[in-house]
Structure formats: C-alpha cells, structure tokens
Design a protein around this nucleic acid. Structure first.
Lengths: 335, 335
DNA sequence: GACGCATGAGAGAGCGCTCTCTCACTCGAC
DNA sequence: GTCGAGTGAGAGAGCGCTCTCTCATGCGTC
C-alpha cells in the first residue's frame, strides 16, 4: 500500500552510494553550494532523480536549526461560534500566499481557550517555527507578549502589545471620515455600533467617533457589538429603542452594518432616506447589500501583505517599525 | 533580546544532569512511561520546570518518525482573486479546531498554480506530515491521486479522486429539493446558475436540476458561474437576456444567489413576486439578504468535522468508507 | 539461606542531515 | 623545478531525542 512510505524512503546516504560520491558532495549539490564540479553535480542529480530522493525535513531542521515555517496565529471566538468572518478568509489566504511564495510553511493555529493559547506557546517554544504572525488578537491578550519574549520574530496584524511590531490600518482616520461624511449630509442624530471593546481597533474607531461628535457639538449614541452580523442587528434594535429618531448609524465594521440594515428594514425604516448607514472595512459583501453599503475602505489584503513583509523583513534583520495603511471613504447607496 | 532563543535552549541532557539521572529516565518521564519511580519522576519534573525545558520537535520527529502534523490543502483560485469565501472560513476554522483538539498541528497549504501543487507534493514527500486533508479540489486535479500514492492517509472534503476517502454532502438530493420547491410554487420557467463545471459538486447540482426539469417536462435554462458573487450577478444578466420571462432561478450556491439578487433588483424585478431565487449551502449571509434567501442547508461545519474524523479514523486503522451528509430545504423569503 | 524473577535505571546506538576540517590535487608564478 | 595559493571531495562529529538492551537491585519462594 505504501510504495514510498516512511519506512523505505531513500536517504542522502543512499544517493551518495548510488552516485559513487560522498554524502558531503550530495549535500552540496542539494543545497546548491558553488564548489562542486559539473560532472559530480550531474551524477548526483541523476541518482536523486532515479531514487526519488527528497530530503527529510526533520533531519535537516535538526542540523540547521531552521524550520522555514511560520506560525499564523488567529484568535478564535470562544463560544463554538463558527462565523464566516470575511477577514479570516481574506487575511489567512493572502498571508498564506505571500508566505508560501517566500518559501515559508504556514502553520495555522487558533488561539481561543486558555488551553489553545498554551498550545501555541508550547509549540513556538518547541522550535517548530522561525517566526509568528498574529491576527486579530484582543488587546489584553497575554499571548503577544509571551511570544515576543521567546526570542524569535513576532509580528501582528493590527496593534496589540507595544513590544510587537505590527501593520495597522488607520482606524481613527477612517472613523472620522465616516462620521464627517454623515455630518456633511446633514445628519445630526448619529449613532455608532462598536466592535468588542477589548480590541484596539474597536477602541480607536469608537474614540474617533466620540471625538468628532463632541467637537461638533452632537450627542454620542452608542451600542455595543462584537463585529458579527447578529450583534449588529441586535445593537440596531437597541439604538432604535434608545433614540427612535436617529438619522444615521456608523457601524464599526461592515458585518454589523449588514445586521443593522436588516433590523432597519424590519422596523420599516428606509435606508438612506430615514436612516443612513455606513460601515467599515469594505468587504466584498458591501457591494451586494440592498441598498449597497457606503463604507470605509481598509485594504485587507494589503494589510496582510504588509504584515507578512514586516515578518520577512525581520528575518533578514530589517526594521520593526510599525506600518500604517491609509483608509478612505467609498460612497455607495446607504449613506 | 533572546532569553530563551534557539541557541541556548535547554536539552534533555541538561535536564538529566540537573536532576542527577540519566537521559533515559528523563525521556521516560516526559513521555509518561509507567516504569518510573515516583521519586525520580518528581525530581525530573522539577528540573524540567526550573530549566523551562521543552522537547525539541525536530529531534523527536527524527527519532520517532511521527510528526503529529496534518496538511490542510485548500484549492486557491488561480487569478489572484481574493474572495472572502465563507466556505474557506468555516471549513478551515472548523477543521483546525478539530485537528488541534486531536493534538495535530495544521499546516495550511494553498494549491493553485502548478508550482504550488508541486510544493505541496514535495512537502508531503519530505515527511512533514502524518496525513493530508484536501478541500474543494477540482475534479480533474491530479493532486489527490498524487498524494494518495505517497502511502499516507489522505482524505477529501467532497468527492474528488475515487482513491481518496471523503465526506460529501447530498448534492443531487439538495438540488432536487430546490427545484421541486420552485415547481411546487407554480414556477415553470426555472433557470439555474451553475458552479465551475470542473468541480464534482457543480456537476451533481446541475445534473439533478436538468434531471428534474426533464422529468417534469420543462425546459432547462442554464448559465455558467464560478461560485462567486460577481459570476452570479453576470450569469443572472445573461439569463434575463436569454429568457426575459423566467420566473425562478436556482443558484448552485448562496454567493451566486446573492449576486443574482442584485442583478434582479437592478433590472427592476421583484423577488419573489416576479422571480423566485433559491441558493445552496445556507451560509450565514443568506439570513441577511433582502429578501432573505431561501436555500438548501448543507451543514458546512458538520461536513468539515466528518472529514476530519475520517482522517483521524484512518490514523487508527479505521475504515475509509465515504460519508454522506443530508441536505434540507430552508424556506425564507426569496422563494 | 540461595536462587530466580520482577522492576527500575543507565548506556549508547541510531534517526538523516549539515558543515567544518582535512586532505589531495591542479595550476600559476617566480 | 619548486613553492604557494586555490579548488574540489571526503571524513566524521554533531544536532536532540527515543528506545532497545543491559545491568543492578529488591523481593518472594522453596
């Protein structure tokens, strides 16, 4: 059943024997060392081909102390909640592409329960990976700091621990843009639906909202969400109850805006006539809502790319300066 | 900067020295062998704690020939297309959870270009993983067969190569359910938007559609899509042109149904009054469309779970019989 | 009281690869 | 013709762990 199973896989030594050269020479050929005569290189490559030789990863890792692997640690909602989070999709996919293109293997780890974060920590300590990329960690999470202390490169998509280099998008700028857009349309009773407040992105978007509202002399109307559609729908219901006459909502992400849209429809409000809605992120789905969602475009894939580049740069002794990505307004129909 | 970097990580030998016992004893304690006196176990554990010892993964792997890792291979759309595919999110997340819970590390690999599938093949051959789980591979893909030949457990989410054990949801049954529902509502000009036809799921859904239509004496109206929203919107435009009087559409997945919904809105059709729309998958977003999407519920997470279980079973010498998951109709507003 | 048998601990040979060191040889310069 | 530099190949010592084998000790049995 196993033509080339673990048991009888060819070793470097077998290749050397077949080619009639030393192990060292084979190793040199495999690793592309310059100091090897063409004739030798030729005969070795043939032996490799004939035997179907593939270097054993663990042995190489043991000898070189390099793994060519990177852990991609993504926070996982604690309550078995399987969300179809578009951010997960976009970020994980893009990060994978970039890392694989750089010859790094991607070890995906979910950090949710206390147990799972211990596993991550242990895994990294076991020397499995050369570096770590964190995604959507909550602000108070101890993991970033723990990992940073292990002495290998750690980067984060979004700011978390000050010690961890990161790429971040312009949350304050984007949120301010959104609120000003609503004000510019003559909206005055502008509410907001926040993300989970233990995440720095949520805090920043909320702060920017309240700052602008205060500066322009308007009252803040706030409801809490957690970045999911349901929470957006629930928060919207809450807001409508708190202030039935509100005329605009700034949701801290598009998913919640979509939830809010549904609640507004159910309550008989017309969007944008009665209530304007604006989201944040500009996910693909924002183009397909009814009405199409006006939102703040924050380039998810660029963000992932920037974070990966930061990590790859660190491997080569590059700088660990934070990267900031611009945010801008995309006007569609909902506001 | 590196208090516990690769360079000076404690080894098993160091632990042995500190505890004043042999390497063997330490190994026995670490691996929970029974034949070890409590006093020794105690002193070893203390040394481990004091030194912060964590076994070196590669060394262990080299000695045991087990990796405790699984490759999760997901097909990647060739054209840099970053879709926020909810299936990716749900499946990858759920599979990760299950695999991690079983003590397996997840190595995520995207299979898109010829180069990337070679990398996957190479990686597996290098003995990096104990098994492979394939996700959404296209039917003609050579990778499943290639990997299956490597002599280690390979499973697939969805049917691909006959040689590869898989879990599958009931595509024919689900599609038939959808079409019959439309017929039951008195719809007669029922069109379909297909998935990419090199995927078996797409083929099955299409075949079931045409079968039912033929059996009930109605004409098939088919447009091609590729499971993305845009393609659904485009296909809908095409259909409307082909038959302006059609009264229902069965989209082979929800994302395309969402696209179709937008085109219908733009063309002034009312859903479901003028045209009924039904999707397939029952993704979270289906609850938030306007009108809410009637669809075939195919339990994505159960599907991922079943596939992982199949793989884990294979590790223990379990059966490789295909698993079939039921599909059922969820009636909302669009049909 | 002598023997045999568990039981628990230590020694050390790998696992497959890399990489430094060493050595043989060739070629150019004086 | 001799010497030195440069080039290419081989030997072998690890990398850190597991696991078999061997050995010492303690106990029960007749």
């Amino acid at each position: 059943m196993a033509p080339k199973s673990e048991a009888n896989r060819p070793t470097l030594e077998a290749v050397a024997a077949r080619a009639g050269v030393s192990k060292s020479s084979v190793s040199r050929v495999i690793n592309g060392a310059s100091t090897v005569a063409p004739s030798i290189r030729e005969v070795v490559l043939r032996a490799v081909r004939e035997l179907g030789y593939v270097p054993h990863a663990a042995a190489r890792h043991l000898a070189t102390r390099r793994t060519d692997a990177v852990a991609l640690v993504v926070s996982d909602p604690p309550k078995g909640l399987v969300s179809d989070d578009p951010m997960f999709s976009a970020v994980v996919r893009q990060a994978s592409r970039k890392l694989e293109a750089a010859g790094k293997q991607v070890v995906l780890m979910l950090a949710g329960s206390e147990e799972s974060r211990a596993r991550v920590s242990q895994y990294v300590a076991a020397g499995h990976v050369d570096g770590v990329m964190l995604v959507s960690m909550h602000g108070a999470d101890s993991l970033p700091a723990t990992l940073a202390r292990k002495g290998l490169p750690v980067v984060s998509l979004g700011r978390t621990n000050p010690a961890v280099p990161h790429a971040e998008n312009d949350n304050p700028g984007g949120a301010a843009l959104a609120v000003h857009h609503l004000l510019g349309q003559g909206r005055r009773r502008i509410a907001t639906i926040t993300g989970p407040l233990d995440m720095i992105a949520s805090q920043e978007r909320l702060t920017a909202y309240t700052d602008v509202m205060r500066d322009t002399g308007h009252r803040s109307i706030v409801a809490l969400g957690d970045f999911t559609r349901v929470s957006g729908a629930d928060a919207m219901r809450q807001l409508l109850q708190d202030d039935p006459r509100l005329d605009a909502v700034f949701a801290a992400n598009d998913l919640m805006a979509i939830g809010a849209l549904r609640t507004l429809r159910e309550s008989g409000r017309r969007v944008p006539d009665d209530v304007a809605v604006i989201g944040f992120d500009d996910i693909e789905a924002a183009r397909y809502t009814s009405p199409a969602l006006t939102t703040i475009h924050s380039p998810m894939t660029d963000w992932a790319t920037a974070t990966v580049d930061l990590l790859l740069g660190l491997f080569d002794g590059g700088p660990d300066a934070p990267v900031l990505l611009p945010a801008n307004l995309v006007v569609r129909e909902s506001a």
